[in-house]
Amino acid sequence: KRLSEREFDPDIHCGVIDLDTKKPCTRSLTCKTHSLTQRRAVQGRRKRFDVLLAEHKNKTR
């Protein structure tokens, strides 16, 4: 699936709103397109961004 077609989940996706499409970014939490500050500011996550990021990195090892 293309990035734009993915169902957005704030707990596994970057989530920064794309200015062109007005939709949240569906790249992983480790997205290189958006800064850490931008990704931390995303609302609606179950846990703090840093906790989710650490969990994500542990899963992908």
Rank of each mutant, 00 (worst) to 15 (best):
P24M: 06
T33D: 15
A54G: 08
D18W: 05
K59A: 15
R61G: 15
G44H: 02
K59N: 15
C25W: 00
G44N: 05
K32V: 10
K22I: 10
K47W: 04
E55V: 04
E55D: 08
E55H: 03
L19R: 11
F8L: 06
V42R: 01
R2E: 15
C31W: 00
V42P: 01
K23H: 07
L52S: 04
F8C: 03
F49G: 03
R48M: 12
E55R: 04
V42D: 02
F8M: 14
H13C: 06
L36M: 13
K57F: 10
V42Q: 01
C14N: 00
H13K: 02
S35Q: 03
V16D: 00
Q38K: 06
T21W: 06
T26G: 08
H34K: 00
I12H: 15
G15V: 01
H56N: 09
K47N: 11
F8E: 02
R48Q: 14
D20M: 11
S28G: 12
I17G: 05
R27G: 14
L19K: 14
P24L: 05
R2S: 15
R48G: 15
A54S: 13
R48K: 14
S28H: 10
L29H: 02
T30E: 13
R2L: 12
G15I: 00
Q43M: 10
V42A: 02
T21K: 10
K47A: 13
R45M: 01
K22L: 11
T60K: 04
L52P: 02
R46V: 09
T26N: 08
A54W: 09
C25N: 03
R27A: 12
I17R: 13
V16Y: 03
T33G: 09
C14G: 00
R2Q: 15
P24A: 07
G44C: 03
K59Q: 13
T37N: 04
D9S: 15
T21R: 06
D9W: 04
V51A: 11
D50L: 03
L36W: 07
K59Y: 05
E55L: 04
V16R: 00
H34W: 00
Q43P: 08
A41T: 08
S35L: 04
H34R: 00
R27T: 08
P10D: 01
C25A: 01
P24I: 08
